[in-house]
C-alpha cells in the first residue's frame, strides 16, 4: 500500500520475486488482532493479573515473530538451507526483522503524533513516552528518528522487502553449514537492490549506500531493543512468550 514508483522500467526480476512472496498484511493484521482479543478475553475471565501495556507489546512482538518465521519459510532461498542453518540465521536477525517491521510501518504512517501497530491500532506517542521509562523512551525516539529519515528518503516497499533478505542472509553469521550459500544470496540481493535503486532513482546516485547506512542504524536499534527486553525479562516483566524468549536466549547465549 506504500507509495511505490509506478514505472515502465525493467526492474530486477529478483526484486519483483521478493515482492511477490510478501505476506498479505491485512491477513496478518486480522490473525494477530484475533489472537490478542482471545488473549484479553481469557485474561478477563481468569484471575490472572491483567496484561500491562508492555506485556501486550510483548504478545504483539511474539505473534509478529511467528509471522516472520512463516515468511522466512516461504522464501525460496531460505528453503534451500538445512534447519540448523535456518535456526542460526533467525536466531541472529529476529530483533532486526521485528524493528524493521515496526519502522517500515511508521515510514508509511502519515500521522506524526501516533504510532501504528501491526494490529492497525494507533498509540498516542505523547502518552506512550509519558508512560515509558528513560530507556524505552530513548528507543521509541530513536526508532522515530530513523523512520523520519527513511520517510525523507521516500523508502519504498520493494526496498523494504530487499532489506528483509539482507538482514536474514547475514554473511557475518558464523558456524553455518552452508556459509558460502548465505554469502552468495546476500551478494545477489545486494546487487539486485543496487540495480533497483539506479534504475528507479537514477537522480539519486548514492541512494544505495544511504540505504545500507540506515540498515546499520537499524541494527544498532535492534541491539538496544534486545538489551531492554533482556533487562525486562530478568525483572520478570516479560509474559511467557515462548518464541520471543527463545529467540532472546539464543541471541544472548
Amino acid at each position: 500500500s506504500s507509495p511505490t514508483p509506478h514505472t515502465g522500467l525493467d526492474l530486477p526480476a529478483l526484486v519483483l520475486e521478493f515482492v511477490r512472496c510478501e505476506q498479505d498484511e491485512l491477513l496478518v493484521r486480522s490473525k494477530i488482532s484475533t489472537h490478542l482479543a482471545l488473549l484479553q478475553q481469557n485474561q478477563s475471565s481468569s484471575s490472572t493479573e491483567p496484561l500491562t501495556t508492555f506485556g501486550l507489546m510483548c504478545h504483539i512482538a511474539d505473534q509478529t515473530l511467528f509471522f516472520i518465521v512463516e515468511w522466512a519459510r516461504s522464501c525460496n532461498f531460505f528453503k534451500e538451507l538445512k534447519v540448523g542453518d535456518q535456526m542460526k540465521l533467525l536466531h541472529n536477525c529476529w530483533s532486526e526483522l521485528l524493528v524493521l517491521d515496526y519502522i517500515s510501518r511508521q515510514v508509511h504512517h502519515d500521522e506524526q503524533d501516533t504510532i501504528l501497530l501491526i494490529t492497525g491500532q494507533k498509540v498516542d506517542l505523547t502518552s506512550l513516552l509519558t508512560q515509558a521509562g528513560v530507556t524505552l523512551g530513548e528507543l521509541v525516539r530513536g526508532a522515530r528518528q530513523l523512520a523520519q529519515r527513511l520517510q525523507e528518503l521516500q523508502l519504498d516497499c520493494r526496498e523494504i522487502t530487499c532489506f528483509k533478505y539482507l538482514i536474514l542472509f547475514n554473511p557475518d553469521v558464523k558456524l553455518l553449514e552452508n556459509q558460502e550459500y548465505v554469502e552468495n544470496v546476500y551478494h545477489q540481493v545486494s546487487g539486485a537492490l543496487l540495480e533497483y535503486t539506479l534504475c528507479v532513482y537514477p537522480q539519486h546516485v548514492d541512494r544505495f549506500s544511504q540505504l545500507l547506512l540506515h540498515l546499520r542504524e537499524l541494527r544498532v536499534l535492534s541491539t538496544q531493543a534486545e538489551d531492554y527486553l533482556s533487562y525486562k525479562h530478568l525483572n520478570g516483566e516479560v509474559p511467557c512468550n515462548k518464541l520471543l524468549i527463545e529467540m532472546l536466549h539464543a541471541k544472548r547465549a
Binding site: 518465521v69 519459510r73 534447519v83 535456518q86 535456526m87 533467525l90 515462548k242 518464541l243 539464543a250
Partner: peptide, 18 residues
C-alpha cells in the same frame, strides 16, 4: 535436565501451511 524442545525448530520442521 533435558533441554526444552526448540519452538523455532518445531515451526521450521512443521509441514508447509500448517
Amino acid at each position: 535436565e533435558p533441554e526444552e524442545p526448540s519452538l523455532l525448530k518445531k515451526l521450521l520442521l512443521a509441514p508447509p501451511n500448517s
